[in-house]
């Protein structure tokens, strides 16, 4: 009797929770876009990311939830906040280059108001209709795909289906994601001459917090990497936690020793992608397809690739936070 009454109550509560969550997400997204104050918009965006992570948990996708919370809310929020600090520093400084830039921006603004608005609307409408079409033509049940994954899980070398898909069955997706991240860093490094905001010394509290948290973050990154083979976790989750440790180090004023800023840093940045591509290419020479891991060594290969990827992703994200290429040729 008790089970019969408690079951509909439970689903009703879940429905209520999901509805509230959905509306809160939409409201936060709208407020973040419409807020005239940039700082407020960023804080709203971080809150949006955290709620989004809960949505992924509700959709039974803890892997995505972890990545969303760490990258979508945490690291992107930190990146946006430093960008804001640099924008404000830039507005204060009055170099010649700065003025030229401002004029360019203003003319851009005027143009946008008159003609480009219509074009933007057309492009947006195309994008929206494309997305609607994609959603409408989506198969309701992708049961065959699930069956396909679980049938071949044994030969993938790992027991977590998400890792099996990301690193083995559709490894090139992850490969391309990692190259996108590397390209983003190259793009950031290509912009020079961004004024640095005034850096204040970290107080005793931030110092102590970093001393306690950074070792813990490194352990958690290693845990995510290891646990990814049979539970939610993996290279991107571990890498973003490692990146958070890097951001914290940069915040307390730690800088990479000048000896390591040149070639050693670059080697670490491309290490993950390098290991991934070389593993795939070596397999071709051994008479297999590109990225076709032999089942007997697939587990070890995936762990190797993920370990390299975690390191590279973490260092790349921390380097993104630094904004601008670390200088190492100043004395030449």
């Amino acid at each position: 009797m008790e089970a019969m009454t408690s079951l509909p109550l439970m689903t009703l509560m879940q429905l209520l929770f999901d509805t509230l969550l959905g509306f809160a997400l939409l409201w936060l997204g709208w407020r973040a876009l419409a807020s005239p104050d940039l700082f407020q918009a960023i804080v709203l965006f971080i809150a949006f990311g955290l709620l989004m992570a809960i949505v992924w948990v509700r959709l039974d996708a803890p892997d995505v939830a972890l990545a969303e919370a760490a990258i979508g809310a945490g690291l992107t929020g930190a990146l946006l906040l430093t960008t804001l600090a640099r924008l404000e520093a830039k507005n204060r400084s009055k170099s010649a280059l700065e003025k030229k830039h401002k004029v360019w921006l203003m003319t851009e603004n005027v143009k946008l108001k008159t003609a480009s608005f219509l074009w933007l609307m057309v492009i947006l409408m195309l994008l929206v209709s494309g997305l609607v079409y994609a959603v409408l033509t989506l198969q309701e049940q992708t049961f065959e795909l699930q069956m396909l994954v679980s049938k071949n899980l044994e030969s993938s070398g790992v027991s977590n289906p998400v890792t099996a898909v990301l690193l083995n069955f559709r490894g090139y997706d992850t490969l391309l994601e990692m190259s996108v991240l590397l390209l983003a860093l190259l793009g950031v490094w290509s912009f020079g001459g961004i004024p640095k905001p005034h850096e204040s010394l970290p107080g005793p509290v931030l110092n102590m917090l970093s001393r306690l948290l950074i070792p813990l973050l490194i352990i958690v990154a290693g845990y995510f990497l290891w646990v990814g083979s049979d539970a939610p976790g993996g290279a991107f989750q571990g890498g973003s936690v490692l990146g958070a440790a890097g951001v914290l180090l940069l915040l307390v004023g730690w800088r990479l020793c000048i000896r390591f800023v040149g070639l050693p840093l670059r080697i670490i940045l491309v290490f993950g992608l390098g290991v991934f591509v070389s593993a795939a290419v070596v397999l071709i020479f051994l008479g297999r397809q590109f990225m076709e891991y032999p089942p007997s060594v697939a587990g070890a290969l995936i762990l190797l690739i993920e370990a390299a990827a975690t390191l590279s992703i973490g260092i790349t994200l921390a380097a993104l936070f630094l904004v601008g290429r670390p200088e190492f040729r100043r004395h030449k």
Binding site: V205, L206, M208, L209, L212, L213, L216
Partner: peptide, 8 residues
Amino acid sequence: CVLLSSAS
């Protein structure tokens, strides 16, 4: 962890 970070 939350105690530590929220206080800081």
